[in-house]
Design a protein around this nucleic acid. Structure first.
Lengths: 160, 160
DNA sequence: AGCATATAGTAAGCAAGCTAATGGTTGCGG
DNA sequence: CCGCAACCATTAGCTTGCTTACTATATGCT
């Protein structure tokens, strides 16, 4: 049979695991006044300080509007700041503040510990295969999204 | 080195893949007036009609409050209905309406096609391993969440 | 120069997660 | 039988995702 409804389907499994991970991390980051999404911004800036908001959106694979609001929150907490660019006033470069560095170091430990916990019981080989599998899925889904972006114009109404 | 920052870390990878899947499915279900979360409710009821809201929340692994609002939406669309239980007025049993059945059949095809697309390029064996890996992760994260629920009471203040 | 187009960011509105607090029922123990 | 605890559901409020529409700035073509 085609539909081997093993348990709930791989799609649901993926969603459940991701939701659970978000929940765990949000809990553990709460003492730091951070959420998982906000941490993603900090982690990206930690290795590539000074990105613009659009670049951040690309790297984090979320929408510009989402990243904008996210930055509002983190900036309100004093961990990052927007700096105008001299030559192009449309841009803002986002930089970590001094307070951010030590906090990032501590949060990194929490994140790594959580990752270890999440992967406990899986061999390095299994982890690698999991990574590879998820990468394939991401690539397939990106392709699906792209192919959709072109079709919608005329799926059910013929011209005149 | 311990932190082999391969690309973005397995945690981010997991979140990205899940977010992408949600995006694709939400798009494809939009013509049906459904979202992925609402579909989860319908899919569950399709095999186990008449669950209570709390049972649905347990099965779907989301909070009661979330499932309540979700049911509001789907009910407003006329696909399900809440029926009071005679002997216990705290309960509502959620049932599919007649209109729901044919729609569920069509949506199921879309979902299965999307799953196939998502997994294209992965052998059955790879899919199985992916499933198993995600199941382990879910179980580890559930354990992490539980162990946290017991600790918080007294992490930093000693009794008198 | 001047207008059209593209690009960076913002704003508003919806869905869906979560938590915490509330109201209404039920059931049990004294 | 009365009151307390447990339980179902709802409400309100927060964050984060998306979409769509808008502003402001830059660029490019005529």
């Amino acid at each position: 049979m085609i539909i081997h409804e093993d348990d709930k389907g791989l799609g649901f499994l993926l969603g459940d695991a991701a939701r659970l991970l978000r929940k765990v991390i949000d809990r553990r980051l709460q003492p730091f006044g951070l959420t998982r999404a906000q941490w993603a911004v900090l982690a990206m800036l930690a290795s590539r300080d000074g990105l613009s908001q659009s670049e951040l959106a690309d790297e984090l694979e979320i929408e510009k509007s989402t990243v904008g609001r996210l930055i509002d929150h983190v900036e309100a907490n004093g961990l990052i700041e927007r700096r105008p660019m001299a030559n192009d006033r449309r841009f803002w470069r986002v930089h970590l503040t001094e307070q951010a560095r030590p906090l990032i170091a501590r949060v990194t430990e929490v994140i790594l510990a959580t990752r270890t916990e999440m992967l406990s019981g899986l061999t390095d080989e299994q982890q690698r295969r999991l990574s590879d599998g998820l990468a394939v899925i991401k690539s397939n889904l990106s392709a699906a999204l792209d192919s959709e972006a072109s079709k919608p114009p005329a799926p059910l109404s013929e011209p005149c």
